[in-house]
Design a protein around this nucleic acid. Structure first.
Lengths: 331, 331
DNA sequence: CTGTTAGCGCATTCAC
DNA sequence: GTGAATGCGCTAACAG
């Protein structure tokens, strides 16, 4: 269980070479005679040599640890990003040091720990993430939030694609009279709306009413839906900016005796538990932003790139989750 | 950005002492004159000294990294446990090395990495986790799965408590005629049932029908509910073994014109998105197993304990999430 | 191609 | 109480 571990010097001795030579070979390294190389590899194999990671890190100056700096860890949307990043790193043999709060103290902690790279997880498109790249001499990537320094690379969900996917789905289902209920003054909302309008335009259509813009809440969904009913707008699909709004809309429509999806289809965004499902299979059709994949993509970027100083914003794809509310799944 | 870092020898020099002395002081260490101690601390502070973590790890032989070995990472219930553990560790300055799959190769990888401890995340109570404790000379703890070696410490959700909480909630709501629909041949199901029966017994009641035991699926919920209706059992609450079953039950009841919660209350377990919510607030009342907290507790155990070789199974508490299906929240 | 010489930064013996 | 000596295990730079 704790016999003296096999050291590199043991391997070297067994192979009849010096320690540095063995080191080179085992690191895939430099010019060594094939014969001796084989001898060394054989010896390492035979002795079950496993290099002391700590010594290696110390000697090379790399920790094989990546910092994950979240702006707001408890947040709903942060978690999947965190998981995606951490598991991706783990699969590559890299440890993660998750730290919550973009504070100077945390930045210092990460520096002290000598992380080899940093994933900064933001809190959505609402507010930019303050760049911390300057404070590190290792690569930094931003996920689910856009760095306020354009030279940084940021990964965010593709909001336009969300809008497009949903709208295409509705059109494919034969809907033609769409309205959009969403939040105002929010970039994510703007992008989704943009996607909606683009697809409609390509189909020679447009929204049957101006986008209804309020907040992200279920309450806003209720309000907007009531307004629609009051105004008697002729509608066959309500595309909501998120699932909460959709939940509010659904409640009102049902209460009013409107059949979903027969009379009106309803569609949300986020694939968020609170609104996305109910008894009898997926209820609400929604767009999943695939935040886990986003976190993974950001992590991969960190590893892949000899810091490609391209910078900029990378939009990662989302996915439609068909449910009953658009008639795509049985109730 | 990358000025030469401040070394311990710089601090020592500034304080006019030797390196070892400075080392002792900064490690909270041994017998040093208060005067010099203060001088050293002041110097460290002034120079903004941060010890090189890599060198420290190397010298001390500890990596401040904890392995997280999951049996099935993509699994639904594994994720919250992972997050709980990883964030808890991170908050304590410990990195995590998440590795999926309980394979010899992965065990070796973790050993090579010289982790200071290991959290093994299982896949529920269904099957025991094969103990890997023997392969490590650092503490190992098991979460969301029970090690097959009784000397290990395992953290699992308290199933009996889940049954108790739900039943107490139903009784508090005035329900008296309960049935229980759950899976068969499953320890988690057994525990929940046990909790249900215990509380009923304490209230001088019993289930109005034998527990209906099938699978964990929504389909089983449908089947069981139909059977109940067919048999005309007089019931005012259906406690389901999980949310999926509850979803099936709900569908049938509604279709049959039974009012929920007026005529019959329905309750699930898991707080699982697919069944737990719908438009208009939390729909299904359910029991949240608090798996994040479970993962956190397991991690804490690893750190807290001078390996308390107590071993055994620790049950972590769950929480009732009141929803509309038991009349606890407005529809 | 190979081995010799250094040194990474810190913590831990011990003398003094 | 303090400092001088030593070693952790490996990799990197040079010399042969």
């Amino acid at each position: 269980m704790d016999r003296r571990p096999v050291l590199l010097r043991d391997v070297a001795a067994a192979a009849g070479v010096s320690v540095p030579t063995a080191s080179k070979v085992l690191n895939g390294g430099g010019r060594v005679a094939p014969a001796t190389r084989d001898r060394i590899l054989a010896a390492a194999e035979a002795l079950d040599f496993r290099p002391d990671a700590l010594a290696q890190f110390f000697a090379t100056g790399r920790s094989r640890t990546i910092g994950v700096l979240t702006q707001n860890a408890p947040a709903t949307f942060t978690l999947p990003v965190l998981v995606g990043a951490v598991t991706t790193l783990g699969a590559r043999g890299l440890a993660s040091l998750p730290v919550d709060g973009l504070t100077p103290a945390n930045v210092r902690a990460l520096q002290a720990r000598r992380v080899d790279g940093l994933v900064v997880v933001g809190d959505g498109l609402g507010s930019p993430v303050h760049s911390v790249t300057e404070h590190f001499d290792v690569p930094v990537v931003y996920a689910f939030g856009i760095s306020d320094d354009p030279r940084d690379t940021s990964f965010v969900p593709d909001g336009v694609m969300a809008g497009r996917l949903g709208t295409e789905h509705l059109l494919a289902g034969g809907r033609r009279r769409l309205v959009h209920v969403t939040a105002s003054g929010d970039q994510a909302a703007d992008e989704r709306l943009q996607g909606v309008q683009a697809v409609l335009a390509e189909a020679g259509l447009e929204l049957v009413a101006p986008p209804a813009r309020g907040g992200w809440s279920e309450q806003w969904g209720v309000t907007a839906a009531r307004r629609l009913l009051d105004e008697g707008t002729d509608v066959d699909a309500v595309f909501c900016g998120n699932d909460q709004i959709a939940a509010g809309v659904l409640t009102v429509l049902r209460t009013a005796g409107t059949r979903v999806p027969e009379d009106v289809a309803v569609l949300g965004v986020d694939n968020w538990p609170g609104g996305a499902a109910g008894g009898g299979g997926p209820l609400l059709t929604t767009i999943d932003p695939e935040l886990g994949a986003l976190g993974a993509a950001a992590a991969e970027h960190l590893l892949a790139a000899p810091p490609d100083h391209s910078g900029g914003v990378v939009r990662t794809p989302c996915r439609l989750v068909a449910g009953a509310s658009t008639g795509a799944a049985a109730l």
